[in-house]
């Protein structure tokens, strides 16, 4: 499923024009991105939470050469699926 498929589904379900559906779907992801960029946690009830984690620098190895390198500190995004989503995915329909 791509963003275009998502727009198609929204358009089928709701009485908006395709253009409107596309714009709103675009907005939804952009709003979430802006909030995450500001390090805010985004909680979508029934779906899951998008959380920013700070990673400290750590030592690692280049798996190809075995050289020891420093993996720089970074900020990463993780998704924690909600209990509802996990349950739904495991329920045979």
């Amino acid at each position: 499923m791509t963003k275009a498929d998502l727009v198609e589904r929204i358009y089928d379900r709701v009485g908006f024009s395709k253009k409107e559906a596309a714009e709103v779907v675009e907005s939804i992801f952009e709003i979430i991105k802006v909030r995450l960029e500001a390090r805010e946690k985004v909680k979508i009830s029934g779906f899951g939470n998008f959380v920013i984690n700070e990673k400290r620098p750590r030592k690692g190895r280049n798996p190809q050469t075995g050289d020891e390198i420093v993996i720089s500190g970074r900020r990463v995004l993780t998704f924690k699926p909600s209990q509802v989503l996990k349950r739904t995915i495991n329920t045979p329909s």
Binding site: M1, T2, K3, D5, L6, R9, I10, R13, V14, V25, I28, F29, K33, I44, G46, F47, L85, T88, I89, T91, S93
Partner: peptide, 20 residues
């Protein structure tokens, strides 16, 4: 609808790809 559609896709074993 967006999150329900995404949930349905995942239930059907479909992969979701949102560019960017």
């Amino acid at each position: 609808s967006v999150f329900e559609s995404m949930t349905e896709a995942l239930c059907g074993g479909d992969r979701i790809e949102i560019r960017g």
